[in-house]
Every structure is written in C-alpha cells, then in structure tokens.
Design a protein around this nucleic acid. Structure first.
Length: 154
DNA sequence: GCCAACGTTGGC
DNA sequence: GCCAACGTTGGC
C-alpha cells in the first residue's frame, strides 16, 4: 500500500498558494471511482506531491500531507454545489474526500517535462498520459521528485 | 482551442 | 454484458 501520492489540482481552482494560506483543506470534488478508491486507502501522515494541472506549464509545485482519512464528500449532496451528484445521499454518500495540510513549496518547480525526462520516473503514472487525479507514487519516485525540486542535479 | 485518451451512460 | 455515443481531462 502506497504511503506516497500525487494529487492534481488546477491552480485556477485551488493552488499551492491557497493551501499555504489556509494551512489545511478538504479535498472535495473527486468524481472518479479509481481516484476515490485511492483516497480511501490514504492514511494520516501519508505524503502528497502537489501537482498543478492545466497550468502553463504543468508540474509539481509542493508537498502536502494527509491529516484526515476519507469521509463522505457532502458537497455531492448539495444541489447548489458544482460537485453535486443527484445519486449521492446521506445513506450512500458515493463520493469521499480527505483533508490535507500544507507542508512546503518546493524551492524549484518540477515541470511535467522534467518528470518525463528524469531517470527513475519512467513508470510514474503522471508521465504516462494518465488523467487520474489521485495517483499512488512509489517511495523512490517521491524522493526523486523532491530532489529535483530541491535543486539537486542528476 | 484542439483533440487524444479514457471514463460513464444507456439502449439493446 | 456489449458497445456506441457522449462527456471530461488535461497536455499541447
């Protein structure tokens, strides 16, 4: 079971700066079963690579940490929410979220292009054209990405 | 803005 | 349970 993850967010919607300012946030709005199932495997203390998608350029911008394990995403039950799902209910919440807290911004931005060219990251899901918004990352991959963001040379 | 990849829905 | 149509993601 992975203790390391990558979570995507569009910075227009929620960025690393938002997380730094707020300190902690609910990761609501995941509406994909595979991503949901992965979130349900998360444990408090798990480490997260914070990834900006649909950004120019896209890439890893920081690190976060899981501070609350999966619980019902109640936004799915709120008709005025953009994340509303009419099939969700209190009895069967259908969707779940976790809470994450800010750990740090990486000193250096690690672009998707860099990830794709880095030794040891060939099998990383995000480099494989995957649309999955919550992804497991191996321990080695996690530390390689952090090293790239900390400015270590190959 | 385009479009490839891929997930979901619904008719049969 | 198959699969075509459709919708979404997200890089480019």
């Amino acid at each position: 079971m992975s203790r390391y993850w990558l979570m995507k967010t569009e910075p227009n919607t929620y960025s690393i700066d938002d997380l730094e300012r707020e300190g902690r946030t609910q990761w609501e709005g995941v509406r994909n079963y595979q991503a949901r199932n992965l979130m349900r495997e998360m444990q408090v203390g798990d480490r997260v690579l914070f990834y900006h998608s649909s950004a120019k350029p896209p890439g890893v911008v920081g690190e976060a940490r899981v501070v609350r394990e999966a619980y019902p995403d109640h936004f799915a039950q709120q008709p005025d929410s953009p994340y509303f799902d009419e099939k969700a209910s209190a009895e069967d919440p259908r969707w779940y979220m976790v809470d994450v807290e800010f750990v740090r911004k990486l000193p250096g931005f690690v672009s998707l292009e860099t990830l794709k060219g880095a030794r040891g990251l060939e099998d990383m899901i995000v480099t494989q054209r995957s649309r999955l918004s919550v992804q497991p990352v191996t321990r080695d991959e996690f530390y390689i990405v952090c090293a790239l963001g900390d400015g270590a040379s190959a």
